[in-house]
Computed example of a mutant assay.
Amino acid sequence: MKEYFDSNTSKLAGLEQVNNYFWNIPMHHLDLDLFKYQIEFTMELLKKKKSLNKVNKRIADIPRHWQLKVFKKGIQLSRLTANEYRDMMKIMVFVVDDLQIEDLSEVYVKWNEMYLLSRSEKFKESDLENFQKAINNWGDLFIKLFQKISNSHLKFPKLHSWIYHIVDTIREYGAINGYTTETYESLHKTYVKILYRLSNKKEVEKQIIENVNKKQ
């Protein structure tokens, strides 16, 4: 994917033919809210630039793939699930390419570079330095593009924490996946909330355990 982007030949690549590396990465939840902000602000920017219909058409035209959610009606933010936001991560770098909006495709390239580094299970000091550089590169573009669009001018805690504190937190506590509460919240949803709703509300614990055993 990066080779096509760097050589400015992305028009020659179809999502159906190209093996997209990001499609095979299991995404964690820590920074999903930040990506949610990025998508929302991108939609607002596209509205201002009168490019939203073009982007929605591009999304709807993406061919079916068994590892990818197909958004035939374009982006409908109010209906996106967590898994669908992860699918959006995989395609947006292509969807916003060549829209004549400065730095928009680049902010998604920088996001993906940063996200890949965040997936590491172990970090050497040199890895953390590279990770901080990737965070700063993404953060600078994110702020440049979206500060005026945000009602709070991007003054929200998760962005501040991610840019200024996540690397120090990794130094103290270890890799991200080892301590984030979002992981356990996801497991709680998958193995408790959803299964509770599927039960008949009688002997709930027994039904949940039986359903979990069926999943394994």
Rank of each mutant, 00 (worst) to 15 (best):
V55S: 02
N19S: 04
I75C: 13
I163P: 06
Q207L: 05
G139Y: 05
K54F: 15
Q147A: 07
E182F: 12
S161P: 05
I176H: 08
R197A: 05
N136S: 10
K189G: 08
V93C: 06
E40M: 10
I101L: 10
K57G: 03
Y4D: 05
V93L: 11
Q216T: 08
D127S: 02
Q17N: 09
H160E: 04
K193T: 11
N151M: 13
A13H: 00
K90G: 02
Y179T: 01
W162T: 01
I39T: 13
L141F: 01
E205A: 13
L195T: 08
K124N: 13
E16H: 12
N200H: 09
Q147S: 08
S152Y: 00
I25R: 05
E44D: 14
S186F: 15
K36S: 11
Q132G: 01
T9D: 03
M1G: 06
K48L: 15
A13G: 03
K69F: 10
Q132H: 03
I135T: 01
E113N: 12
L52K: 00
I25E: 04
F22R: 05
K50G: 12
D140L: 05
L159R: 01
S186N: 12
L52M: 12
I163G: 08
V70M: 03
G178D: 12
L32H: 02
H29L: 02
F156S: 02
I166K: 14
D140Q: 00
S78L: 00
F146H: 03
E3I: 14
H160D: 06
A134R: 01
L34W: 13
I143N: 04
H29D: 08
K202A: 15
S10K: 09
D6K: 14
D31P: 09
S78K: 04
A82H: 06
K202Q: 15
K202Y: 14
N53Y: 00
